[in-house]
């Protein structure tokens, strides 16, 4: 049995890898097509109209070659994809550094931010959702529902602006932006500094994403509390607390896990806007800069990395559910024997 399920896992992972490859190919291709269709002229965007006017035709031709203006889009994509398969992500045209390095640096900043937002929104959202759903119609439930609906209809960047105005500008408790203090040497930046700079963006990100996980968990919890097996547990004299703990939590956990790992993409998308508002030097901000400046290698690099992370999140959810849910465990074993 053991060996069987290992082989099952192997096949499962192999299947996922193929899907992943197809996904990355399609995502990078569409991102590339979008950039090449975009009306932004990399020369005007990065060099400026006035500077271009004062240049000689030879200089302009050199710049055009650098930004790849004359080359047909398909040829550029194929040459990028060829390099990418050899493990070479190319050089960022804007930062004049290897794309891999830029992404690495930016990802380190963003990852902390996104992980914090993801954990906070997941943990809080799940807990509050359980609370609201278990005591449906109660005071806590009504307040949480109100909060959830307000937050679900609030754009993340607007909330970020509000936080910025209140906590950074009015109260001056927290810094206005950037990942580190301005005018301080790189070596002198402490971890506490970095933490202080991440608080507002992380709050903006998590406050909005709490609502979706909370409302979904609440809905599921209500279903569970009205289920036959909870009725039976009550008939057997189990206390409310025990019912929530023994029957509610495990049965709500599965859909909540799937949802929260799926929410990785939302947090990723939200981080682009929030980082922009706080001028936070993360991946999201780099993506915006690359997109507006026509920095194709960097943009494609970021696109691929994002696809990986989102895909990885969903795959983790699948794996966890298969490990937790006895019905799925059995289905996998059955798939092996037949």
């Amino acid at each position: 049995m053991r060996g069987c399920s290992h082989r099952g896992l192997g096949r499962f992972l192999a299947g996922k890898c193929v899907r992943m490859a197809v996904l990355v190919l399609l995502v990078s291709f569409s991102a590339f097509m979008l950039v090449s269709l975009s009306p932004v002229d990399p020369l005007t965007a990065n060099v400026g109209q006035t500077a271009l006017g004062s240049m000689s035709p030879e200089q302009i031709a050199r710049l055009e070659a650098y930004w790849g203006v004359g080359t047909p889009p398909i040829r550029r994509f194929i040459s990028w994809a060829g390099d990418f398969f050899r493990g070479e992500m190319g050089t960022s045209l804007l930062y004049r550094r290897p794309v891999a390095l830029v992404i690495q640096e930016r990802l380190a900043n963003s990852l902390g931010l996104m992980a914090a937002a993801w954990l906070i929104s997941g943990g809080l959202g799940f807990g509050l959702g359980i609370w609201a759903g278990a005591k449906k119609g109660g005071m806590a439930d009504r307040i949480l529902c109100f909060y959830g609906l307000i937050m679900a209809s609030t754009p993340g960047f607007w909330l970020a602006l509000m936080l910025l105005m209140i906590f950074a500008v009015r109260l001056q408790w927290l810094p206005v932006g950037f990942g580190v203090p301005v005018g301080v040497e790189a070596e002198a930046v402490t971890l506490a500094d970095r933490f202080r700079h991440a608080i507002l963006p992380a709050a903006a990100l998590s406050l909005t994403s709490i609502s979706s996980i909370m409302l979904h968990t609440r809905e599921k919890m209500i279903q569970v509390m009205e289920s036959d097996y909870v009725l039976y547990a009550r008939a057997r004299g189990e206390s409310f607390r025990r019912i929530v703990w023994r029957h509610g939590l495990p049965n709500v956990m599965l859909p909540a896990l799937t949802l929260q790992f799926g929410a990785v993409s939302e947090i990723f998308g939200g981080s682009v806007l929030v980082e922009q508002v706080f001028s936070y030097p993360g991946l999201g901000q780099a993506a915006v800069t690359a997109g507006l400046g026509g920095d194709v290698p960097l943009l494609l690099g970021i696109t691929v990395i994002s696809a990986w992370i989102v895909f990885g999140g969903n795959m983790t959810a699948d794996l966890l559910c298969a490990a937790i849910d006895p019905r799925l465990r059995q289905a996998q074993r059955k798939g092996q024997t037949s």
């Binding site: 289920s227 097996y229 547990a233 008939a235 023994r246 049965n251 599965l254 006895p326």
Partner: peptide
């Protein structure tokens, strides 16, 4: 109470 069937048991 002895209920109707398997749906009254916690599936997990």
């Amino acid at each position: 109470l002895v209920p109707q069937g398997a749906s009254y048991l916690n599936p997990l």
